[in-house]
Write a protein that binds this DNA or RNA. Structure first.
Lengths: 338, 338
DNA sequence: CTTCGCGTTGGTATCGTTAACAGTTCGTCG
DNA sequence: CGACGAACTGTTAACGATACCAACGCGAAG
């Protein structure tokens, strides 16, 4: 025996038909105890394991118990937490998880989705990259369930689990204003990603609400690498009218900014991170709960897989502004009004 | 058409046989340009996508272009980096990645491995949980290639990509000793995990080499949760003869310890982490390169999948002691000898 | 004009499993 | 004592794709 043993091999070993082996292996149908015992012995002796591929091929109407998880980058702590939580739920539901990173590249995203659907995944959890996701409609029409997490997918009618990015940033900016800041800088990632667009909207709304004119010189978009963030922060601080407070779009940017940011500049970051309270000053953050997001998304997905056909929903999870110090550094207008 | 279109559907649409569709889809065999064009049109019209499951069933001797990645916990930054790097290599090799977390539970590890092999993965990359991995031998015998990363798997003859944990910790402890420390505490995770055992060995060897008697009161093993670390550190510092330096087994423990550790205690952590240089004092770490580890492991795995049958190898990747300050806090014996 | 060979196409069997159906052997009941 | 159902087991035909072989048409060579 060179390759994997098959049901036929087990059947021959136990002196029964393949059908009987199938019944024993699946615990379905009636098999005489003595026969079942013989089959089980043969299974153990040969180390037989049911071939899920063949099984899924035959049972096309049943779920394949495989889901796909497509994130920007698994190495990102937020995405890693999402992946971990999703995998946890999947395992409990008896499913395995195919993982892929789009690196925020729409083309790569499409490729990975294709590789997943070709393997008959029951559903997809994804953090949509930029651009229209209309290309997912055929997959959806063919029965693949889709749930977005962290972001909505433009051009796609699917469930989504997100936070109210706009309101969260608005609150954070109002918080900075309340502490006497008027020149508040914004460090943003790719603005074509839905989440970042929302966050920047919140920034603008808060400024507008406080009657502060938006200064485009204080806003840096499209930051990606750590060096680019460092350069952006350095340039902002060296400018004629530097900001007295900064807000970072996401964790990645925050790490970059914090390597060069002097303590006198107020700072708030989107996403909490370990040891934030051990920096000087401790870092005020807008915290979201990636585990809750992903767990909710996964439950939603499995409900769909099990036949829930209600209209797509968008669930909004809470965020929390955790005041640790860096966001409470007083600005030049501190104490004048409140 | 309710479900996915099949080759037969495409064949009917294009007025050819399924075999011809197969040839066009795979770009193999000779097909007249006009026929191929007709088939391609039908493929596009129906949104046909080859079913990898059926294909893999038929082509049992060919790789399934699916690999499994089994780590302790994807949410762990080190493991997340490993996952990301492995997925990257896999994608370039045209493979998809099934991911699973064992949570360091051998039973769960076995279940996930079974779920993976049942789907005919070509190979596995895994960070072995505690205990014997003899149970993987049947899978290996049936052709599943296995590469361990970060740890060796006891009881299994497989490739491994690791760092020299023992030497790295030995160096770190010698470094602390050189800075005048003699009472050096050790915060350890599960000692039944190979990596942690090695690291602790390094600690003992270094002490022994310096003629310092090991004090079991300074060693805490089996720490897992953040609270347990906090409690351990607090207790160590409150003891009659407290340590003047501490070493943490892994990143997770370091985070816990750093929340309560006073700056006067020297500290070195295994694994580098973001913002380590921004803490006070900046944290000295033993850095390893998870991306390099995983990339190497993945390359090794694909070489095996492509037929490399040379004897299993263990590759040892370098570590680096990054001196940032916390590991250079002078101890009571500083300056007496060197 | 036959034959060879090549390019092109289709038919059939098969991968490993299971749904559907068909048969077998019982014990039991009228 | 024959019939009927229940429990058990086997046979056949798929799932969707491809390896293998056969067959077709057609131009070139003999």
């Amino acid at each position: 025996m060179v390759g994997r043993p098959t049901m036929k091999d087990v059947a021959a070993e136990a002196g029964v038909s393949a059908m009987t082996v199938s019944r024993v292996v699946n615990g379905a149908g009636s098999v005489a105890p003595r026969t079942a015992a013989r089959v089980e012995a043969a299974v153990r002796k040969l180390g037989y394991q049911r071939d899920e591929l063949a099984r899924q091929l035959r049972r096309a109407d049943q779920p394949s118990r495989t889901i796909g998880l497509l994130v920007d980058n698994v190495a990102d702590p937020f995405m890693a937490a999402v992946a971990s939580a999703a995998e946890d739920v999947a395992r409990r539901r008896g499913s395995v998880v195919l993982i892929g990173s789009s690196r925020a590249d729409p083309r790569r995203e499409r490729e990975v989705v294709a590789a997943f659907t070709a393997r008959r995944v029951d559903g997809l959890i994804l953090t949509p990259a930029a651009g229209s996701h209309r290309f997912l409609r055929p997959a959806q029409a063919q029965g693949t369930k889709i749930v977005c997490v962290d972001r909505a997918a433009p051009g796609l009618d699917a469930d989504a689990v997100v936070v109210d990015n706009r309101a969260a940033v608005e609150e954070a900016v109002r918080h900075l204003i309340a502490h006497g800041h008027r020149r508040i800088g914004y460090l943003g990632g790719r603005q074509d990603i839905w989440t970042n667009g929302e966050r920047h909207q919140g920034y603008r709304t808060a400024l507008q609400g406080a009657g502060i004119a938006a200064d485009p010189g204080l806003v840096r978009h499209g930051l990606r690498s750590a060096p680019s963030v460092v350069e952006a922060v350095t340039a902002l601080l060296a400018s004629a009218e530097p900001p007295t407070a900064l807000l970072a779009d996401n964790e990645h940017l925050a790490f970059g900014a914090l390597t060069v940011l002097p303590p006198r500049i107020a700072f708030i970051a989107f996403d909490d991170f370990p040891l934030a309270e051990r920096l000087t000053p401790p870092v005020t953050v807008i915290a979201q709960d990636p585990v809750a997001l992903a767990t909710t998304a996964a439950h939603l997905l499995f409900a769909r897989i099990q036949g829930d056909t209600s209209p797509p929903r968008t669930l909004v999870m809470p965020t929390e502004l955790i005041r640790r110090g860096s966001g409470e550094v007083p600005g030049p207008y501190a104490g004048r009004r409140d």
